[in-house]
Simulated scan of single mutants.
Amino acid sequence: MKKAGGRRPSGPPYIFSFVWLIYLVYPLYDFSSRPIDQLIEGIALLIVFVGLYLYSYRRQRGRLYSVLGQLLMVGIFTFRYDASFIYFAFYPSPLIGMLPNKKQIVISMSAKVVLYAAVCWNYKLYLDSNSLIQLVPAMLVMLALPFAVRAGHKAKELRAKLNLANEEIARLSKNEERQRISRDLHDTLGHTLSLITLKSELTEKLITRNPERAIQEVKDIQVTSRAALKQVRELVSGMNAVTVLEEMDHAKQILTAAGIGMETKSELDGRIPSPLIDNILGMCLRESVTNVVKHSRARMCKVELLKQTGTLQMIVTDDGDGTDNVSSSAESQTASCNGLKGMRDRLKLVEGELEFESAAHKGTRLLFTVPLVNKSGEEGESRA
């Protein structure tokens, strides 16, 4: 079954296999100078060889037998025509690295070594230094090629598993947040709403029998509902009140789960004086760490909180892949990345700024700068 983008689980795109068939022009040219019977025989053998090659590139099932068949065909070509046909072993070499298990790889590599030894012995290449200089390097490359392909395939599998792990971490984090909200709502509002229900039922019964008592119960329901509304506001406020210090602890857990190390440096004595700045920087830190986990493929992430004259700086740096596609100007950043735009919009509330630096294979650096002004205090004074 093919994957999205035309790729199959067992190897590179199928079209890639046709590229190398261009080199068949050389044996065709060689056959054209031979007698007609050898020409027909050579073309027929080439058709069989190409069929085995394309089949083994296309299908994982039976690939071992296709590879062994190709090596057998290479032996027929070399013993039947010329030792230079040993270069045909380049075709099955990458396919050996695509075999599903070590046992099949060992069998194929053994067959290839036996083929090389037989060709060297039959043509006594060990007595011809020129032939050795020409063929031995190519043989070594053909022997190493399966291991290179295997290593690349393993690296691709590891990247896919890492992406799945990162997605699972994000999903579990969301589920945990939903469960926490559910517990808080149940514990905070469960008793209050039950009390309102009971008083409503009691009021319904007292309306005709004892109106004055019913009026008092209605007043109690109003007081209780206002208390419930206050509890909801406090709960929502508690959900949104993300702080930098708390978010740093949360970031360490997320990065550790993703296999990313974390370094921290803080020049703060305690919490940030302004709750609004504390909340905004905490949300920006959460977004930054989420991007590191999802996209950077970093091994280390560093978070720094620095106090300058009249300003507070938060720096988030990683040693991941980075990118050359995002410009350093703030306008182009916000246009190309919703995450950066969201962080910049938050920082506008406290007259803060965001600087983005990134380069391919050199990591990414985010610099958040905010003035140390207590916005909530100023607003309270102005209202007074």
Rank of each mutant, 00 (worst) to 15 (best):
Q313F: 07
G322Q: 01
V292C: 03
A298I: 07
S329A: 03
S327A: 14
L306P: 09
C301T: 13
V292N: 02
N291W: 09
D318R: 01
G320V: 00
T309K: 14
S329H: 13
S328H: 04
R297E: 10
D319Q: 06
G322H: 02
K302V: 12
T317Q: 04
T323H: 03
N291V: 05
D319G: 01
N325Y: 15
H295P: 11
E304Q: 15
H295E: 12
E331H: 13
T309F: 12
T317L: 11
T309L: 10
V316D: 00
D318M: 01
A330L: 14
I315N: 09
S328N: 12
D324G: 00
D321I: 04
V303Q: 00
S329D: 02
Q313R: 10
S327T: 03
R297P: 06
T323I: 04
T290Q: 12
T309D: 12
K294P: 11
D318G: 01
Q313P: 08
G322M: 04
V292H: 02
S328D: 13
V292E: 03
N291A: 05
M300E: 14
R299D: 13
N325R: 09
S328C: 14
L312I: 04
V303W: 00
T309G: 08
E304G: 10
H295V: 13
D318E: 06
D318L: 03
V292F: 02
D319I: 04
K302H: 15
V292Q: 03
M300W: 03
D319N: 12
L312W: 06
G320R: 00
G310T: 08
A298D: 02
A298G: 07
L312K: 06
R297C: 12
C301A: 14
I315D: 01
D319L: 01
H295I: 05
M300F: 11
A298K: 01
G320W: 00
L306Y: 10
T317K: 07
L305M: 10
D321W: 01
D318V: 04
D318K: 02
N325L: 14
N291H: 09
T290A: 08
D319T: 05
K307A: 15
V316F: 03
K294C: 06
M300C: 14
E304C: 11
G320E: 00
T290K: 11
A330V: 15
S327L: 15
T323R: 03
K307P: 10
R299S: 14
L305R: 06
L305G: 02
V326D: 03
K307H: 14
D321P: 08
L305K: 11
D319E: 10
T309M: 12
T309Y: 12
A330N: 14
G310E: 09
S329I: 05
M314R: 05
